[in-house]
């Protein structure tokens, strides 16, 4: 339901455009900056999609992102564990961030990382440190 906290063991995928990646393809802090007037960082909730494997869930998210966005040729998808990212920010800064469900009609797995604007640059760098795996678009 909208506004629900995502379970800590679950994962989210953040779309990382090519202009926000390092030369080796890893996301830099800018991949986790808010756009102007954005209230939260948009992510996709992997487990919500109820796929058999993680790979299938990534594929499903890929097709959602391709429908929604103008995906660049060098873009990547970064997988993040909810507990890891919240815990890392909490222990390193004493700040609390939240990952909440933000479903929309065409994208029921859509979710948001809230409260990164408390200290955006530090929190963005810390989130970038917690990226689990990276996936290219096929």
């Amino acid at each position: 339901m909208k506004g629900d906290h995502l379970p800590g063991k679950d994962h989210v995928i953040r779309y990382c455009p090519g202009s926000k990646l390092a030369e080796d393809g890893t996301p830099l802090g800018t991949a986790f900056y808010l756009r102007r007037n954005e209230k939260y960082l948009s992510v996709e909730w992997m487990e919500y999609l109820q796929q058999r494997t993680k790979e299938c869930a990534v594929k499903e998210v890929e097709s959602i992102l391709l429908r929604k966005l103008n995906v660049g040729s060098t873009a990547r998808m970064a997988v993040l564990n909810v507990d890891n990212l919240c815990h890392h920010v909490k222990t390193q800064t004493a700040l609390t961030i939240r990952v909440l469900h933000e479903p929309s009609g065409k994208d029921p797995a859509h979710s948001g990382i809230y409260d990164t604007d408390q200290d955006e640059m530090i929190i963005a760098e810390l989130i970038a440190e917690t990226v689990d795996t990276l996936h290219t678009f096929s």
């Binding site: 926000k20 830099l28 802090g29």
Partner: peptide, 14 residues
């Protein structure tokens, strides 16, 4: 440095 851009086109160095 590592270089990237923000959505607004601002330069970021790391």
């Amino acid at each position: 440095p590592q270089i990237s851009l923000t959505t607004e086109g601002d330069v970021y160095l790391r």
